[in-house]
Design a protein around this nucleic acid. Structure first.
Length: 102
DNA sequence: CTAATGACTGTGG
DNA sequence: GCCACAGCCATTA
């Protein structure tokens, strides 16, 4: 398991991702804010893209602020639909209903 | 050291 | 809604 990012940063991000309830989604910026790094939304995405190397995390419950799923990862939509998350005609998650409320 | 990159976000047209 | 542009910042080359 190669160490790509700073451990503490990985831990903070993944621990938040872990708390996302089933049937809900969170945005990168939302997670970044929760760990006190509002400007680091891009870092959140970087960690999630490699999350599989760190363990099993529900990284499929994280989308960008428009509700778009990760590019090049079709399975994500399928996984969310299995949890009851609905998608709109334009292929975006219905954030209005399913965005994680803290 | 500098420069480019990206699973991002906010603003403005 | 779409597109272009500008911040953002750790990682990579």
């Amino acid at each position: 398991m190669a160490k790509i990012l700073d451990e503490s940063l990985i831990y903070e991000i993944l621990s938040v991702v872990e708390e996302i309830p089933e049937g809900s989604v969170a945005s990168y910026g939302q997670i970044a804010a929760l760990i006190g790094r509002e400007k680091n939304s891009r870092l959140v995405g970087r960690v999630l893209s490699r999350a599989e190397f760190y363990g099993d995390y529900p990284c499929h419950r994280v989308v960008n602020h428009t509700g778009r799923t990760a590019p090049g990862w079709r399975e994500q939509r399928f996984l969310l639909e299995q949890e009851g998350v609905e998608f709109k005609e334009n292929g975006l998650v219905d954030m209005k209903k399913y965005q994680w409320r803290v």
